[in-house]
Nucleic acid binder design. Structure first.
Lengths: 337, 337
DNA sequence: GGTGTTTTTGGGAACGTTCCCAAACAATGG
DNA sequence: CCATTGTTTGGGAACGTTCCCAAAAACACC
C-alpha cells in the first residue's frame, strides 16, 4: 500500500559502510572523514533521502511538536495568535498541532487527550467559555509537560500565563466614553467564569467610580457569547425607561451585532448611542461607523506565549516559574464613539 | 529533564505478565481472558497510562496526521476550510498539521519538506500566488503520499482537486450586473498564474459576450492580491475618460478596500458604481452597503478535500483517480449592487 | 619498528509499540 | 485417559533512528 521509503540503512548498504557512519554524516557529527561524508551526502541526495521524524521522535522521546488548544476559529483573534505562535515555534524547529474546542468542554477534554497521546512537548491553551473543571489540563503538569495559558486563563493552576491588560483596556474605553459626555454606559459582558470578563467588568466599574458616576446594575448584562442572543439583550436595554447612551461590549463581534441591530432600529451611532468593542477584530474598520475598540496585540500574544513555552521545554521542571505576562492594549478611537 | 512516562512494560511487570498481553488488552484484541483484561484495564487507569503515539507511529509507519498547506490565515476563507477538513480528519482519527506559506513560494517549499520529514499520511494544498514550480509537491506523488489540491490548484499534476465553480460564479455575478443595467463593468482580477483567476476572468468575459456587451481590455486589471495596491488600481479606473459603473473583484477583501476608497472619494454605491466580490468573507455583511458576493461553501470544501484525501490514504495507489470536484457557488445579492 | 595518540568506523542497545509464531494451558469428545 | 481442538499467553523481531563503547585504522614520534 505504501512505497518503500529510503532509510539510512539503504544508504549504508549501498556504500558498504555502517548505518552509524551514515547517521553521523547526516546529523553533522564532526568525526567522519571527508571522503565518506561526501559519498553519503551525494547518495542521500540522489536517492532523495528524507529523515524519518517518526523514528527520531521515538528515539528522542520528543515529538518536536507543541499543541495549541483554542476555543474557536471564526473570529480573527485566535488565528492571529496562532500565527504568532507558529512563527516562534517553527523558528525553533517545532511543529504545531492545532485543535479547536468549539467552545465545548468535552471537546477540550478530548483534544487534551490527543495531545497527550501524541506526546506534545508542551501545550498552549485558551479555555472554552464552559470550562470549570481543569483535571484534563492538570494531567500535563503531573506528567511534566509544560503548559502555558493565554487569553482565557485558568486561575487554578500555577503556570505561565499571557494576557492583555483587560482591566486597563476596559477602563480606558469607559473613561473615553465618560470624557466624551456619556451618562448612561451599558456593558454587555461575557460569562463571569472567564477571567477576561471579570477583569473587563472591573475596569468598567472602576472607571465609573473614578468619575463619580453611578453604577447601575440594570445596565450590566452578562451573556454567554452566543451572538444570536445579542439582539435580545440590546432590545432589553433600549426598552428601559432610561435607555443607555453608550454601550461597551465584551468583544467586537458582539458590538457588530449590536450596531447592526441598532442601525436597523433607526438609532444614530454615535449621536444617540456610542459603541465601543474589544479586540480590534477584522471587520471593525469595515462597519459604519468604524468601531472604536480596544486593540489587543494578537500576534504578540502568540509569540510571547510560544516563547514562554519553549523556555520551559528547554529547562528543568524545577526552574519553571508561573510567569504572568500582561501585554498592553491600545484604545483605537474611531467613528462609533 | 522529562518525567518517566508509564509504558505497557511497566504494566506488564507489575502484573507479572508479558507486554504482548497488555498490548492485546489495550488494543481490544479478543483473545484474552476476562480476568487479565480487567486487571490490566484497572492498573492502566490507576497509573494514568497514555499510549505513546510516537511508538505506534514508527511501528505502523504512519503518522496518523494529514498536512495542510495554505497561503494565509488572515481572511476567514482558509480557517473555515481548515475547520471543515479538521472535522473529517479527526473523525477518522487523524491529526492535522497546519502550515502557512504566507504567499511565499520558498516558505511553501520549506513547509512541504517539514511535512515529508514528519511522514504525513497525506497532504492538502492550496498554492501561493507565487508558485510556478511544482517539484516540491511532485515529491509527494513520487513517494506515494497522496495529495489533494483545493481552491488554488495545480494544473500540472494529475491528482484530486476540489474547487468551486469559479467560472459559473463569476458568470452569475457579471450577468447580475448586466441585468441590473450596468454598461461598463470593470474586473479587478488576480494573477493569471492562479487557476481561479483565469476561470473567473473567463466567466466575466462570457457573461459580457452572452449579452452582446463589448469586452474592454482597459477595464480588466490583474493585480497580485496585494491589498495595498487596490487604491492605485481603483484610482486608475475612476480616472478613465469613461469610468466604469460596476466593479467585479477577484475576492471580498479587495472589494472592501475598493469600497472604502470609493466611499472616501464621495462615490455613491451602488448608485454610481456597483460592487460585487467573491467568497462571502467575514465582513461582507458589516460593510455598508452590504457587499453582493459569490458565496463559496468553505466548510464543505474542507470536508470534501479531506474526505478525498482519506479515501486515497485508505486505498491502493493503483486505484487513485484524479477526481475533480466542482462545488456550487451562490450569488448573494445585497446592497452594493 | 614499536609505542602512544587521535581519527574514523562498526556493532549493538535503546526508544515503546504491534504482530507473528509457537508454547502452554484448558476444554471437549470418544 | 489420550487425542483433538480452542483459548490464552510469552518471546522476539520489527519500525528507523541515535548514541555509547570498543575496535580498527591512520598518524605521529622517538
Amino acid at each position: 500500500m505504501k512505497k518503500h521509503q529510503i532509510t539510512i540503512i539503504d544508504i549504508a548498504r549501498q556504500l558498504n559502510i555502517s548505518k552509524s557512519t551514515v547517521s553521523r554524516v547526516l546529523t553533522g557529527h564532526p568525526n567522519v572523514s571527508e571522503k565518506t561524508r561526501e559519498a553519503v551526502l551525494k547518495l542521500a541526495n540522489e536517492l532523495d533521502y528524507q529523515r524519518n521524524m517518526l523514528a527520531i521522535n521515538l528515539m528522542s522521546s520528543q515529538s518536536h511538536t507543541i499543541g495549541i488548544i483554542v476555543p474557536e476559529f471564526v473570529t480573527s483573534f485566535f488565528p492571529m495568535v496562532i500565527m504568532g505562535a507558529q512563527e516562534v515555534a517553527s523558528q525553533a524547529g517545532y511543529n504545531v498541532l492545532i485543535s479547536q474546542s468549539n467552545e465545548s468542554y468535552e471537546t477540550e477534554v478530548a483534544n487534551a487527550k490527543v495531545m497527550l497521546d501524541n506526546r506534545v512537548d508542551g501545550v498552549l491553551v485558551s479555555l472554552t467559555r464552559e470550562t470549570r473543571n481543569y483535571d484534563h489540563l492538570k494531567v500535563f503538569q503531573r506528567k511534566g509537560i509544560p503548559i502555558v495559558f493565554f487569553n482565557r486563563v485558568c486561575d487554578d493552576m500555577q503556570v505561565p500565563k499571557v494576557v492583555v491588560d483587560d482591566y486597563e483596556g476596559a477602563f480606558k474605553a469607559v473613561e473615553h466614553l465618560i470624557l466624551t459626555g456619556r451618562k448612561r454606559i451599558a456593558h454587555l459582558g461575557g460569562p463571569t467564569s472567564l477571567h477576561v470578563s471579570k477583569k473587563r467588568l472591573e475596569g468598567y466599574k472602576d472607571a465609573l467610580r473614578k468619575y463619580n458616576q453611578p453604577i447601575d446594575p440594570g445596565l450590566i448584562l452578562d451573556y454567554d457569547l452566543n451572538l444570536e442572543k445579542v439582539k435580545i439583550y440590546i432590545k432589553h436595554l433600549l426598552d428601559l425607561p432610561e435607555p443607555p447612551d453608550a454601550l461597551f461590549t465584551i468583544n467586537d463581534p458582539t458590538a457588530f451585532e449590536a450596531m447592526i441591530f441598532m442601525k436597523a432600529k433607526g438609532l444614530k451611532i454615535p449621536e444617540e448611542i456610542a459603541v465601543v468593542g474589544f479586540s480590534n477584530n477584522y471587520g471593525s474598520t469595515l462597519i459604519e461607523p468604524r468601531l472604536t475598540t480596544v486593540a489587543q496585540p494578537t500576534h504578540q500574544i502568540g509569540q510571547v506565549a510560544a516563547q514562554l513555552l519553549l523556555d520551559q521545554i528547554n529547562s528543568d521542571a524545577s526552574e519553571w516559574k508561573p510567569i504572568y505576562r500582561v501585554l498592553k492594549t491600545e484604545l483605537l478611537v474611531r467613528g462609533s464613539s
